[in-house]
């Protein structure tokens, strides 16, 4: 379920982020508790907490004592902005490098992207 070459706590964090970005978890709604995440992913409490706590520190989630964690106001927009900021280095650089390696021309690359967009 998890990739080998990336710290698990980051992957936990990204999954929660994904749910917020996809609107599965809406702003103001209660996020799954650490115990629920531990039980679901079978990942150690310490690891899950590390990922979740980062989101709390960054104000994406906030804690209500004794009740649980909730998605902060404006969380989705901030996550989308963060991801746009890193889109170039996370996705485009690798894509272009691989295309160059394989000798795919710019025109071919555009065509591929267009084709892909049509089918997603």
């Amino acid at each position: 379920m998890f990739e080998q070459d990336k710290p698990i706590y980051l992957q936990i964090r990204e999954r929660i982020e994904d749910q917020i970005v996809d609107n599965q978890l809406k702003e103001g709604e209660q996020a799954p508790s650490t115990t629920q995440l531990v039980n679901f992913y079978k990942i150690n409490h310490a690891t899950v907490s590390k990922g979740v706590n980062q989101l709390v520190e960054e104000g994406i989630l906030f804690k209500r004592r004794g009740i649980g964690m909730f998605v902060a106001e404006g969380a989705r927009e901030r996550l989308i902005q963060n991801r746009k900021d890193t889109f170039l280095e996370n996705f485009v650089v690798g894509l272009v490098q691989e295309a160059n390696k394989l000798g795919i021309t710019d025109q071919e690359l555009f065509e591929l992207i267009k084709k892909c967009k049509g089918s997603v």
Binding site: T34, T35, A46
Partner: peptide, 30 residues
Amino acid sequence: YQELLEDQSEHPRIIIMSTHLVSEMDYLFD
């Protein structure tokens, strides 16, 4: 395991579990 984790989060206590089923239970241990 599920019940253990849920009850521990609501009623924290010292729990000591001996096992040799390490890969199956590793996510439970603090």
